[in-house]
Design a protein around this nucleic acid. Structure first.
Length: 708
DNA sequence: GAGCACTGC
């Protein structure tokens, strides 16, 4: 699968140039040859037979089997796209949806967006003639809100289901119900089911299943679940013993090495292993899995120091770091070919496990650790901690050494430790805040969340906690139904429910323009980028935007400054404007990717909000009003200063600290609201604005009763 | 005076 590979697909079929035609022809011949050589090519007919026979099919295919690119084409050729119906394929990541769609369009010799297309947030490259549609799983979930029967699809393929993202887990539950509903619409199914469809039959108002499609007939929906892990049983059991077929992959052997004893210092062991490979093994690049930016930077420094101590003819070693918050130009360095005679050492976080495929890797060093997010629903506390990886992750990591030839993987722990690892990583849905998932399900007509047929059920307490949160936000009624209009409006917005509610409140406070910017900026990764070697410059740059009131207004200042800057340069073309903005970001130590993302989100939610009929007005200089609005919106995240200078979060009673990245880090206001609480070395609150304590009882009396 | 793995609508 071409995930994250940055090959530029050349579009065929639009060339007037003869030379290019020849090139295109040669390339197509090559593609055809490649397709025929894929392991999956030999089982095309068998697979199609199985799809005809089974409404649900599990396909287990290892990497390199070609299942993602080939199966949709098999289905198309077998006539599954007749009468305007489409095959939909979901991916957990945007890049994957895009790169695979490009590849398949090329293989089919069609223009991207015609027969083969893709659809991801902010980007829809499909048309009425699209029959093979790649998309992100989250997008299909959104689509289900508008078209509950997913009526345009004859087949839906959920790819990479083993990754068990929240979105794909919810999607599987939903698809199970859609399948029942469609069969039933055809009179093919009369038995009682516990799906949402039958439950909601009498409740036309809240069940979108029956709202506009009552009496309509839908052809059955075929469902294919594709997974790379051997764990097909989970999916097969979930779908009532569904048939599973295995497709061979094409992976080279990877030799695994363990240490004899546990390593007390895995960073030191990493360094030793790097140099051992460098001095003793054949040429080939090394991929090292580390837990975070800080670790990567220090290992990089140490390698650079030690390489200078080697004899000169052994010094041909280059290091390249990659992690998500690195600016994309620097991320691209991992794809640059290694200079002849050199060895490249890539120091990566988990990003290299699935999101980015780096070519040329022959050796993998795996200390067996990962920084993982966990969530404690009782305290509403998120944590980021270093924990051991699962066996499946260890396998995925070692596999990175065998993509182009035989490889070696060095696990920096004994084999006995490997045996003790969990088989697979805990699915995300069991370790996250469920407010968003619940809001979505409610909007889809699923009222009994605890009874919903999750592939793996989140804990009852996690569900209850999120229901409570939604109730406090006014999204649910006393009967735990989606409220109208508030809950219904919130479910339409692609935002954290707290932020959706903030927009609704802001329209009452007449500061919706400011809040739109705020939630867009809060929805992206850190806006400020401070490289270690230019920390002072970066700080000075941040000062130019900072507001004494706190981080929210600081973020608005950044957004508006960028906007003004763009408007000044409106006359030049789009590409030029992008380039100018990049330069502006660099000068101001702002992460260009994050800012662009925030601008996209801003545009998207502005449209949504307009369609809802909310009025986008600015409160101008009335900062006080905006702060009151923040207090009214984020009252669940209020904190009071303690005598020692720490804070007490009022809703949970936890003792927390202001994160040093906040503009209020030194100011320490008496009372504040925050938008993020995360435990690393301490419990830190991020994105803070100072408020007046009295506002809380005034603006959120339902929560802060009259005591002062 | 410290640091945040990775996705997605």
């Amino acid at each position: 699968m071409a995930q994250g590979s940055l090959n530029k697909a050349t579009h065929s079929g639009n060339s007037a140039n003869d030379n290019r035609k020849v090139d295109t022809f040669a390339r197509r011949q090559k593609l055809l040859q490649h397709r025929k050589s894929l392991p999956i090519a030999t089982v095309e007919r068998r697979l199609i037979d199985e799809v005809r026979k089974n409404d649900i099919l599990i396909i287990v295919g290892e990497t390199g089997s070609g299942k993602t690119t080939q199966i949709p084409q098999f289905l198309f050729n077998a006539g599954f796209c007749k009468e305007g119906k489409s095959v939909g394929i979901t991916q957990p990541r945007r890049v994957a949806a895009v790169t695979v769609a490009k590849r398949v369009a090329e293989e089919c010799g069609v223009e991207l967006g015609q027969r083969v297309g893709y659809s991801i947030r902010f980007e829809d490259v499909t048309s009425s003639s699209t029959r093979i549609k790649y998309m992100t799983d989250g997008l299909l979930l959104r689509e289900a809100l508008l078209d509950p029967y997913l009526s345009r699809y004859s087949v839906i393929i959920v790819d990479e289901a083993h990754e068990r993202t929240v979105q794909s887990d919810v999607l599987l539950g939903l698809l199970k119900n859609v399948q029942i509903a469609r069969s039933k619409s055809n009179g093919q199914l009369n038995t009682e089911t516990n799906g949402m469809v039958l439950e909601k039959e009498n409740d036309v108002q809240s069940s979108i299943f029956l709202k506009h499609d009552q009496g309509k007939k839908f052809p059955p929906l075929k469902l294919i679940v594709m997974s790379a892990s051997l764990d097909a049983r989970v999916f097969s059991d979930y779908f009532g013993g569904a048939k599973a077929v295995h497709v061979q992959g094409r992976q080279f052997p990877v030799e695994i090495f363990y240490t004899f004893h546990p390593e007390p210092d895995y960073l030191d062991a990493t360094l030793i292993t790097v140099f051992q490979i460098h001095l003793e093994e054949a040429l080939g690049d090394i991929l090292v899995f580390l837990t975070g930016q800080e670790e990567i930077e220090s290992v990089e420094r140490l390698i650079k120091e030690r390489v200078l101590q080697l004899p000169e003819n052994n010094q041909r070693l280059v290091t390249v770091p990659i992690f998500s918050s690195l600016p994309s130009e620097q991320q691209m360095r991992v794809f640059a070919p290694t200079p002849a005679g050199y060895r490249k050492v890539i120091l990566a976080t988990n990003i290299a496990e699935t999101s980015v495929t780096i070519p040329g890797i022959k050796y993998v060093i795996d200390p067996g650790l990962v920084k993982a997010r966990s969530y404690d629903p009782k305290q509403g506390l998120e944590s980021l901690t270093v924990v051991p990886i699962s066996k499946a992750q260890a396998l995925q990591r070692s596999g990175r050494a065998g993509r182009e030839g035989p490889g070696k993987c060095f696990r920096l722990y004994p084999e006995s430790e490997f045996e003790k690892l969990e088989n697979s990583t805990k699915p995300e849905i069991k370790r996250c805040n469920l407010a968003n998932v619940i809001l979505q399900l409610k909007a889809l007509g699923v009222d009994d969340i605890i009874g919903f047929d999750f592939i793996e059920k989140p804990s009852r307490s996690a569900i209850v906690k999120s229901l409570e949160q939604l109730f406090l936000l006014g999204a649910l009624t006393d009967e735990c139904k989606l409220s109208d209009p508030v809950g219904r409006q919130m479910s339409k917005l692609p935002l954290d429910p707290v932020y959706s509610k903030a927009l609704i409140i802001a329209s009452e406070f007449k500061c919706l323009q400011e809040m739109l910017i705020t939630v867009a900026m809060l929805s992206v990764e850190s806006i400020f980028y401070a490289p270690r070697d230019k920390l002072d410059e970066a700080r000075a740059a941040m000062k130019r935007f900072s507001s004494p009131e706190g981080d929210h207004i600081t973020l608005i200042n950044v957004f508006r400054a960028a906007n003004e800057f763009m408007e000044k340069n409106l006359t030049c073309g789009k590409e030029k404007a992008d380039k100018i903005l990049r330069k502006w970001c660099k000068e101001n130590f702002i992460n260009n990717r994050s800012l662009r993302h925030a601008r996209d989100i801003h545009n998207q939610i502005r449209e949504h909000v307009q369609q809802m009929g909310l009025h986008i007005v600015s409160c101008g200089d009335d900062v006080l009003n905006f702060r009151r609005c923040l207090a009214a919106s984020f009252f669940l995240n209020a904190a009071l200063k303690q005598p020692e200078g720490t804070y007490r979060a009022l809703a949970s009673g936890q003792i927390v600290q202001i994160h040093p990245s906040s503009v209020l880090f030194q100011k320490k206001p008496e009372c504040l609201i925050y938008n993020e609480l995360i435990q690393t070395n301490h419990k830190y609150i991020h994105k803070i604005t100072r408020i007046d304590y009295l506002w809380l009882t005034e603006l959120a009396p339902q929560f802060y009763s009259m005591q002062s």
